[in-house]
Design a protein around this nucleic acid. Structure first.
Lengths: 109, 109
DNA sequence: GCCTACTACTTAGTGCTACTTTGTACTGGT
DNA sequence: ACCAGTACAAAGTAGCACTAAGTAGTAGGC
C-alpha cells in the first residue's frame, strides 16, 4: 500500500468500517476480505481487528460471539444507536473535507 | 476541532497545502490564515509550519526568503516539478477513496 | 499421525502526523 | 515602555495504520 493511502486512511477507515456495519452486522475476517475485495489491496488484518476493538471500547457497536463451522468463533459486530450518531457525524466531517478539496482541485484560488 | 477532523486531516492536509501552492506560491502564516478562512477553524499554526518543513525536506517545494514589511522575513514556498508529481499522485489516491466512500454512503452493500 | 492451507482473532512494537505549548523576533500604535 | 499583530521554530503528546508474530480451530493430502 502506498504511504499516501496509509496516511489518508487514518480517520477514514473507521468511518468505512462503521458504514459497512450500518449495512449489516459483520465480523473481522469478513470485513477484511470485503475491504481487500474493494481494492484496499494490502490492508493489514491487524489493522481491522485493532479498529474493531477500539470502536467496541467506545461503545459504538454491540458484539455477539457466533460459532463458526470453520475455525474459531466469530465476533459479530453490529452498529448501535451511539454508533449511528457517530457515523452521521463522520459523514458531516467527510462532506466538509470533500467540499474544500473539490474546490481546490478545480484550480481554486 | 473535532477529533474526527483531526484524524481525517492526517494525510489530507498535506495534499491541501500542496494544492494551495499549486495555485500560487505562499508562506506559512498566509496558508494558516487561508485555511482558517476556509473553515478549518482551529488549525494550529505549529501544524502548518511542521508540514512545510516536511515537504521541503522531501524536495517537493522550493523556498525563497522574502523580507516582510511587518515582522520577520517570510519563507515563500512554491511547488516544483517533483511536488507536482506528488500532488497528482495525491489526487489519484483521493479519488480512489472518495469513490469507495460514495458507494458506501448510498447504502451500497 | 503429520503437514499444509484456510479461517478467525490477539498482541507487542514501530512510524507518521496533527496537536499542544512555549519561545524567538520584528513592526507599528498608544 | 507596552501590547497587538506578523512570522517562524521546536520539543513533547496522542492517536492510528502497519509490521510481525502468535494462538486456535477445521479440513484435506500424504
Amino acid at each position: 500500500m502506498g504511504k499516501q493511502m496509509t496516511e489518508m486512511l487514518k480517520g477514514t477507515l473507521e468511518g468505512i468500517v462503521l458504514a459497512i456495519l450500518a449495512g449489516s452486522p459483520a465480523y473481522g475476517y469478513e470485513i477484511t476480505a470485503w475491504l481487500r475485495n474493494q481494492g484496499f489491496s494490502d490492508i493489514a488484518e491487524g489493522t481491522v481487528y485493532a479498529l474493531l476493538v477500539r470502536i467496541e471500547q467506545r461503545g459504538l457497536v454491540d458484539v455477539e460471539k457466533v460459532p463458526s463451522e470453520k475455525g474459531p468463533p466469530r465476533k459479530v459486530y453490529s452498529l448501535n444507536a451511539q454508533g449511528r450518531d457517530y457515523l452521521e457525524e463522520f459523514w458531516g466531517t467527510w462532506s466538509f473535507l470533500t467540499e474544500r478539496l473539490e474546490r481546490l482541485q478545480e484550480g481554486g484560488s
